[in-house]
């Protein structure tokens, strides 16, 4: 199988590391060769963060460059737009429509481009927006945005539903498993 490329993007502190850990482990258990590239340190302090997940028969590069991603899972609207150029022509963006103002917007030096998703759609990209924050809060914690999004994106992976649930059980701290299962299902059935 040709190597597939998944990007998980968002704002530092939104839980993208856990999502990539879950996905990476699941893909390995499914029998793929897997590489997951994380970013630590300074960029985590509320900055834009990007994690690359690549899987296939044999994966070489741990990173993804422009025009290569099969799927972008974005935890925030602006971040989806920032990395849209990484998407393949027939790739898909699954995006939480939540808006988190970056510092230039907060201090009034720039405007938040609110209509940017429709702009991307108009350009022919396949963009699926969902209000993952509301689903997460429904599940019991605003922190579960990451799992809601994984639930929504699950259909783009050739992995049985039960294995996703097993992966959640194996990755998430025991006391949060039930809440995260609800979050996953809300995304999955959305």
């Amino acid at each position: 199988m040709k190597t597939k490329s998944v990007m998980i993007v968002g704002v530092g502190g939104q839980g993208s590391l856990l999502a990539s850990k879950l996905l990476g482990r699941l893909l390995m258990d499914e029998g793929y060769d897997v590489k997951v590239s994380e970013v630590h340190g300074m960029s985590q302090r509320g900055g834009s963060v990007v994690t690359y997940v690549r899987y296939g028969d044999k994966v070489y590069s741990p990173i993804i460059t422009e025009g290569e991603a099969d799927i972008i899972i974005s935890f925030e609207k602006l971040e989806a737009a920032r990395y849209a150029s990484y998407l393949k022509k027939d790739g898909k963006i699954v995006v939480n429509t939540q808006e988190i103002d970056p510092m230039p917007v907060i201090i009034g030096a720039a405007e938040y481009p609110t209509d940017v998703l429709s702009e991307l759609t108009a350009k022919g990209l396949q963009v699926e927006g969902l209000d993952a924050l509301t689903f997460a809060e429904q599940a019991g914690s605003s922190k579960a945005v990451n799992i809601v999004l994984m639930g929504r994106a699950a259909k783009y992976f050739d992995i049985p539903y039960d294995n996703w649930i097993k992966a959640i059980e194996n990755t998430v701290a025991p006391k949060f498993v039930e809440m995260n299962k609800i979050a996953f299902n809300l995304g999955y059935n959305s």
């Binding site: 530092g12 509320g46 834009s48 602006l78 971040e79 030096a109 720039a110 481009p113 940017v116």
Partner: peptide, 9 residues
């Protein structure tokens, strides 16, 4: 659209 930077803070 202009995509404002999101530096760490």
């Amino acid at each position: 659209s202009f995509i404002p930077a999101r530096p760490p803070m």
